[in-house]
């Protein structure tokens, strides 16, 4: 290892006055314990409800506050209609780019023949993307999207509009519950994906005179379709 590394770590230990032997072992134990037990801190009251309907209501309320639109559908069969109607409402082109996520590919896109659907990452030439959320945290209407073979990260940032499918069964209260789901997934997948995007509303900036404007670099519109699978 590098001299810089040893020197920095040595300096930290000296500054902390960390002793050898039992003291060092105790410090190591404290760190191991925290990393294994991962104690959960204070969860805000509002995020503690276990009721899925209350979580949907909270998610929708918080989403509205960050200029994120939402709607609820009863089955995947309704996804193409929901998407097509949204595009029509917003006067957007009926061309979609999406990842090959099973939930997305399972939807009967043929039921809306005007929609043109392609899968894969984007180079910025696609105006509208569709993605499937891994989970959602209702406390601030935050979506968790994971990168992977069927979920390109570029779809979350380059298109002007993004539509995200979120299963109600994956809607939790606090962020900590997203990590709980993620850790369960990691055991199978062998670790975290390259990217976990927590997304709360469309892109925004206040960099010019603190005037909040949407669509700074990322999407100008974010529409969440909640699938009631509970």
């Amino acid at each position: 290892m590098s001299a810089a590394r040893d020197q920095i770590l040595g300096h930290i230990r000296r500054s902390l006055g960390r002793g050898e032997g039992a003291e060092a072992a105790a410090a190591r134990e404290a760190v191991d314990a925290r990393l294994t037990e991962r104690p959960r801190g204070l969860i805000p009251e509002r995020a503690r409800t276990p009721d899925p309907d209350a979580l949907v209501a909270l998610f929708q309320e918080k989403a509205a506050r960050v200029d994120c639109t939402t709607q609820v559908i009863a089955s995947l069969d309704e996804l193409p209609d929901a998407v097509a109607d949204y595009l029509a409402r917003e006067n957007l082109p009926a061309e979609l780019r999406m990842g090959a996520h099973p939930d997305l590919t399972a939807a009967p896109w043929d039921s809306r023949p005007t929609l043109s659907v392609s899968t894969g990452p984007t180079d910025g030439s696609h105006a509208v993307s569709v993605a499937a959320a891994f989970a959602g945290a209702a406390e601030t209407a935050t979506l968790a999207l994971l990168s992977g073979p069927d979920a390109p990260t570029t779809l979350n940032f380059l298109p002007e509009s993004e539509i995200v499918l979120l299963r109600k069964s994956r809607l939790v209260g606090p962020y900590e519950d997203v990590w709980r789901l993620l850790r369960a997934r990691n055991e199978e997948a062998g670790g975290l994906p390259r990217t976990v995007n927590l997304i709360t509303g469309p892109s925004r900036t206040g960099d010019i005179e603190q005037t909040i404007e949407l669509g700074a670099h990322g999407p100008l519109r974010l529409h969440v379709v909640i699938l009631d699978d509970v």
Partner: peptide, 20 residues
């Protein structure tokens, strides 16, 4: 209440990843 994008990055793109 939360910023628009909070992004967690772990390592480079995985072999099967389409981007990154």
């Amino acid at each position: 209440e939360f910023s628009a994008y909070t992004t967690f990055s772990t390592g480079p793109r995985r072999p099967d990843d389409p981007d990154g």
